[in-house]
């Protein structure tokens, strides 16, 4: 999602309690609010920060899956266009659907649905929150129906008793499903996680906008381009290339682009790298790693020199058997210290 989430403003909020749903069926029913919650500036801003913060750190670009049986795409599109279903009824249907989806060990939680604006785009944000044990949700009776009071909502949200785990945001850029800009994240899964299957596919009715193998390939190519075009010192080039291969050969199943830059690049190169990722329209937050299309490039590093000399080495050899030194005249010295096994001719 390329929208500036610092422009996000929360217009309406409604909160429903969605309990454990045991496979045996012996569990409580969702507790549904009947009217939206009244909002104070603090609570409005709390939701704004949680949506922007969660999606800013770990969002996936998603799109509605045309083959889904989830009612979410229909409900979201209706809210953003015709509004034949009221905000309250839409959110209640979403809560009932979440209850159906989250079977087994999915924790109970609060489903919060917000109508938002991001600059001049309307949108719907859906948050699954988990409250600390013992913090009960109490609906108050109002003339219009049951809902969370401002004070209770404030107590639940602003006292750190509630954490935001899963977020979906859908912004209207046109009148059909294809024109809805979607993003989702699951902070509960942590650095290596992906968006929980039940939340992304069963509940939101979405799929990732780009297949992980393609994103991984584009990341690999854009990073190599950055190393070769923007980094001038050969030692640094080698260091960064080794880091790229280590990242993609590693066991983590997700790449966080910012964390990769932060952990491997000198501080003066990090923002330039992120700008390059931005230009390549890669997700700045992260993506699921699938090295299927780049596997052949991950085994060795090739150094090609102006004279035509080429050196091929495994990443683990760099800094050990292969030493790279920047010389004052701009040239580079590569020293190989090893046992020579054989020499062959090559065209």
């Amino acid at each position: 999602m390329s929208r500036d989430l610092g422009r996000l403003r929360v217009k309406r909020v409604i909160v429903h309690e969605v309990p454990y749903h045991l496979a045996s069926g012996a569990s409580a029913e969702p507790v549904l609010s009947e009217v939206e919650s009244p909002l104070s500036a603090e609570v409005r801003n709390f939701f704004r920060e949680k949506i922007a913060g969660s999606l800013g750190s770990a969002a996936y670009d998603v799109e509605f899956d045309a083959s889904t049986t989830s009612p979410l795409p229909r409900l979201v599109l209706d809210n953003l266009t015709a509004k034949t279903t009221s905000f309250v009824a839409m959110s209640q249907e979403m809560a009932r659907h979440l209850y159906v989806c989250q079977k087994g060990n999915s924790p109970e939680g609060l489903l919060t649905v917000c109508e938002v604006d991001v600059a001049d785009c309307h949108g719907v944000a859906i948050l699954k929150l988990e409250r600390e044990q013992g913090a009960r949700v109490e609906l108050a009776d109002t003339p219009a129906g049951r809902t969370l009071s401002v004070q209770h909502l404030r107590d639940l949200m602003l006292t750190e008793r509630t954490k935001v785990f899963k977020v979906g945001l859908f912004l209207q850029t046109g009148a059909d499903l294809d024109s809805i800009d979607g993003a989702a994240c699951d902070t509960q899964k942590g650095y290596d996680g992906t968006v929980a299957h039940f939340f992304l596919e069963q509940f939101l009715g979405c799929r990732l906008r780009e297949q992980p193998e393609l994103t991984t390939k584009r990341f690999f190519e854009a990073t190599e381009r950055f190393i070769n075009e923007e980094v001038s010192e050969p030692e640094k080039k080698a260091q960064y290339q080794v880091a790229l291969l280590a990242e993609l050969n590693g066991t983590r199943d997700k790449v966080s682009v910012r964390a990769f830059a932060n952990n491997n690049f000198a501080v003066e190169d990090r923002q330039a790298f992120m700008d390059q990722m931005d230009q390549a329209q890669l997700p700045k937050t992260g993506f699921d790693k699938d090295t299927h299309l780049v596997r052949a490039h991950l085994r060795r590093i090739q150094m090609a020199f102006e004279s035509g000399v080429a050196v091929l080495a495994s990443p683990e050899n760099i800094g050990e058997q292969v030493l790279i030194t920047d010389l004052p005249n701009g040239q580079t010295r590569v020293e190989v210290t090893d046992r020579l096994r054989k020499m062959t001719g090559r065209n």
């Binding site: 500036d4 610092g6 801003n45 704004r48 920060e49 949680k50 922007a52 913060g53 800013g56 750190s57």
Partner: peptide, 9 residues
């Protein structure tokens, strides 16, 4: 979070 540019990696 307010500005919409994350620093928490």
């Amino acid at each position: 979070d307010v500005w919409g540019v994350p620093v928490d990696y």
